[in-house]
């Protein structure tokens, strides 16, 4: 005789707690440490370049505002237009370009690090991973990489910018150091770096997580 089991309805899958998500993401970063560092360097370089351009602009502005003859000579030697009213369009253009370079660098690094693992996302779904688990692990992973990479990049850009300006103009740069403007520039770079890193990671991860497992496993690397 053949019978059909009447089973109680299927429960919802157990939510993996954030602490375990963090544990899994951290493990993934640590085991792929070389690959993780390369991804992070992509973020560091992009943000360092942007920060350098921004901080440089702020420091030069504060030197121009001194209206000191000796400094003006040095500024003109360095090619700065000291008689301009308002922002220098050339400098703005360069900052815009550095922003584009920075975005392309970050998106490329983070996107690659997800797309090369889309097959893994399919496998994890076969094992019972919820879509939200996948997105959460990539969120944690990219946040760690993005925030740490951005912090390093913002610091590196600042240091290089200060060093270069100090070498050209001497100690005077420290006496008129534009703290508030530089802090704002750092904050802008930090926000751009962190937000872009996370977005460039979780958008493709979400896209892959929403697929049927077999379709995710079929995606070409």
């Amino acid at each position: 005789m053949i019978t059909m089991n009447s089973q109680p309805s299927i429960p919802l899958q157990t939510r993996v707690p954030w602490s375990v998500v963090f544990f899994v993401s951290w493990g993934s970063l640590r085991r792929r440490i070389f690959r993780s560092l390369i991804t992070m360097i992509g973020v560091v370089l992009g943000i360092a370049f942007l920060t350098y351009m921004l901080v440089n602009d702020r420091m030069v502005n504060s030197l121009v505002a001194m209206k000191d003859d000796a400094v003006n000579v040095l500024l003109q030697k360095a090619g700065v237009d000291i008689f301009r009213n308002g922002p220098d369009t050339m400098v703005l253009l360069l900052i815009g370009l550095s922003l584009l370079t920075c975005l392309a660098g970050i998106i490329n690094a983070m996107l690659m690090s997800v797309t090369e693992r889309i097959k893994e996302i399919g496998t994890l779904k076969c094992l019972g991973a919820e879509d939200s688990f996948i997105v959460k692990t990539y969120f944690v992973e990219s946040s760690l990489q993005g925030v740490l990479g951005t912090a390093c990049g913002a610091l590196a850009g600042l240091l290089v910018s200060v060093a270069v300006n100090a070498a050209i103009y001497g100690g005077v740069v420290f006496s008129v150091f534009p703290w508030m403007a530089v802090l704002k520039a750092e904050l802008i770079a930090f926000l751009i770096g962190s937000v872009m890193s996370v977005l460039a990671s979780i958008i493709p991860a979400y896209w892959a997580a929403c697929k049927q497992p077999v379709d995710a496993m079929r995606v070409e690397e």
């Binding site: 429960p11 919802l12 779904k125 076969c126 094992l127 019972g128």
Partner: peptide, 13 residues
């Protein structure tokens, strides 16, 4: 009849 979380439960258990 199952939603994606229930399907994840089936695949898991």
């Amino acid at each position: 009849d199952l939603n994606s979380s229930q399907m994840a439960w089936v695949r898991c258990h």
